[in-house]
Design a protein around this nucleic acid. Structure first.
Lengths: 410, 410
DNA sequence: GATTTTTTTCTCGACAGTCGAGAAATTTAG
DNA sequence: CTAAATTTCTCGACTGTCGAGAAAAAAATC
């Protein structure tokens, strides 16, 4: 359904545009903003004056003039305009980061996760305590926290911050909105971890390729298997989605997966699955909860020495991944695939299977192999994705509510 | 990448909005347009005056006043504002329809397709002749044809009107843009047939459910298998895509498909595939080019009488479809599935397999079975999808180019 | 038949936004 | 100290939307 436009909306959009180029390029002068946004100088004056009055941006102190003419006055976000808390939930720990409005990391710590199955209730309590702790350490008032951005592996509701299914809690849902709402006014968003990796890679790619960038998928290999897809939206930036890839059906009546279903991709390509088939344990054995990486390293070493059974285990994993990716490509469009996560250290063993698995589908035979690259530093990408996404959400909210609020009350 | 907004853009968007409610609801009075669009009466006056001057809409002749007060003046599209040619390519014929700007069918005929494999070049020539013929029969000047909307089964390029792969011509690409460009100034768009079915069903659904509508998939069963997905876009209407579903990998190293690959869904669920397995022909047999529906009806009759082998063939087909749909759902979100096409007459035989195939995946076990409905009249839906899509494209183009042009020259 | 009521459409002034041109500000070069 | 260069700011013109009320036109009422 289309919806009406108004002149006020124009100002809102252009204000967000100004803030976004400030994000992308750091502190900028009036003229540069005008160049980047294609807005006229007069408009930039109006918008920046408004944002400055609303205490969202500030003029930086004069810097040594670097040419002749009137010296530039750089504009930048006010760090203290608001704060963001990033919560990264991984299988063994929860990391809390406090970030200011300019994207600068202020404080960070991790808390080990107790592996008891007591579950979701206790976990939520721990997250609430962690949030209060990082707030307390930094002496920032709670109202100044504008957004809490959470990520986890697993399946996430697309509209509300609800963790629908996760490797740790299974189908025990966690609704972060209602868990945090009485205590926090901040907006809460939740994203799949691999989605954020894809978002970060997509943003990087867009800087390099500009308008040529179309889409990209990130595949994360580890104890579980995740996939994130970024597509260039019509106009409104990027469109991202995190399918339930790890638990997509690979083979009907196949190996038993942690999720209780048979034949998931993860039941062939997850770390526990590789372990299982390397030890020739029957495929309907209940899988191990947690596999030390050292264990898998040993299997990989044997495979590299030429032992057939462990090599076959990796090959089977690759095939499952390749078949799954080919199915994904059948449903979307041709796009490059970036592989991240701890599993990349076994890429040499997985590669042949992946390529063979991909090659078994019509779309790949027709369009050729997609580009596959291995990307390290998954953790950095996750955090980068959080920042990209969260800060642009804040920019929008602040323009919609903040500027008008100040205008009305001042 | 965000892009700048301007007041002129506001007018454009609101003009398109006015035209779109006129499409949806037929001839409307000033007041009604204001109600639907939430634009003020003054704005409606300005926009409609402009559109009327540009000869895009017109005031209808006074109708018998149906209440007291000043009688309403209905506004409607001018039929002669422009014309649309719809070309529906099916396996045995090509149907040409001439439609005016108000969406009214003016002329229509079908031409049999010669089944010779001489191929794409001759086919393109036939289409060009068909287009000239329908134009000639109606005595409309060629410049008045604003859009040619083509549909076919198969895989379509998402940005240009290029048929990348089709059941008939295989990988022999057909670029309708370059084929028609010297002769026609009209814009040319090409869509997958099942995509249009999905678009039409989505539009119907949106009228019923309004903002509650989220997404929907249409599955077309016949000689080939097609899938279209409609999702409610962020703001810009609906977002639609036509995956290469029929040739998504069902089972590695499976039955041989028409496309030359092994294990496609179509190699189990296409009409020729059902025939093949009902006659217990080996799965690597080169499939029949064309299967008369009567042939399949006979097999279905036997299956309904309780013969095991034909029943098994339908069951296998259902399993392939169900597995494929479950994979689709793993990659998107839960959505209802509408089944159309000639294959719906065997739905009683397919159903159990489809449901079993769906149930084998994690996502379905978790979220439950998606709603499945059988929808007849695929042909009507295809045409309806053409109109929805083509006329809104015309509306946009006309506002962007037309109004400004008139303004500038007048 | 004249007047009132009701409903719809049109018009006017206020307000918000963008833009181009030129004025003002401020530094370096000579 | 003046001229040139560069950046920022300001002003008037233009386009857009909106609310309120005037104008139009038919039915209802007296």
């Amino acid at each position: 359904m289309l919806t009406k436009s108004s002149t006020e909306l124009v100002r809102q959009r252009n204000s967000v545009l100004v803030l976004s180029v400030l994000r992308r390029h750091g502190a900028l002068a009036h003229t540069e903003i005008s160049d980047f946004t294609r807005l006229s100088s007069a408009t930039i004056s109006a918008i920046t004056a408004e944002l400055e009055k609303a205490q969202i941006i500030e003029k930086s102190e004069q810097q040594p003039a670097s040419g002749r003419g009137r010296p530039r006055v750089l504009l930048r976000q006010r760090r203290d305009c608001g704060y963001l808390i990033v919560v990264i939930i991984s299988s063994d720990a929860v990391q809390y980061s406090l970030v200011d409005y300019a994207g600068k990391l202020i404080d960070r710590f991790s808390e080990e996760r107790s592996h008891d199955p007591a579950g979701a209730v206790r976990f939520v309590a721990a997250v609430r305590a962690g949030l209060l702790r990082i707030l307390d350490r930094s002496k920032i008032s709670q109202e100044k926290v504008l957004l809490i951005s959470i990520s986890s592996k697993g399946l996430v509701n697309s509209t509300e911050p609800v963790l629908v299914w996760s490797p740790i809690f299974g189908s025990e849902q966690i609704d972060f909105e209602s868990a945090l709402r009485p205590e926090w006014q901040a907006k809460v968003i939740l994203d799949n971890e691999t989605l954020l990796v894809a978002a970060a890679l997509g943003a990087r790619e867009e800087i390099v390729k500009g308008a040529d960038f179309r889409s990209l998928a990130a595949l994360s290999l580890g104890h579980s298997v995740g996939l994130g897809i970024v597509r260039r939206g019509n106009q409104t930036g990027q469109e991202i989605s995190a399918p339930n890839f790890g638990h997509m059906l690979h083979m009907a009546n196949g190996g038993l997966c942690r999720c209780g279903t048979r034949g998931c991709i993860e039941a062939y390509a997850g770390f526990y699955a590789i372990l299982r088939s390397a030890f020739e344990v029957p495929l309907d054995t209940i899988p191990a909860k947690f596999v030390p990486v050292a264990e898998l390293d040993k299997i990989a070493a044997k495979a590299r020495q030429g032992h057939r059974v462990p090599a076959f285990a990796f090959r089977q994993a690759g095939l499952a991944l390749g078949n799954g990716l080919s199915r994904m490509l059948s449903l979307t469009e041709r796009m490059p695939i970036a592989i991240t996560g701890p599993g990349t250290r076994y890429y040499d063993l997985l590669r042949q299977g992946i390529e063979e698995g991909l090659g078994q589908s019509h779309i790949v035979r027709m369009e050729g192999m997609p580009e596959i690259r291995v990307v390290a530093d998954e953790q950095i990408l996750v955090f980068e994705g959080h920042l990209n996404r969260a800060l642009s959400v804040i920019d929008e909210d602040i323009v919609v509510s903040g500027v008008q609020g100040i205008q009305a009350s001042g």
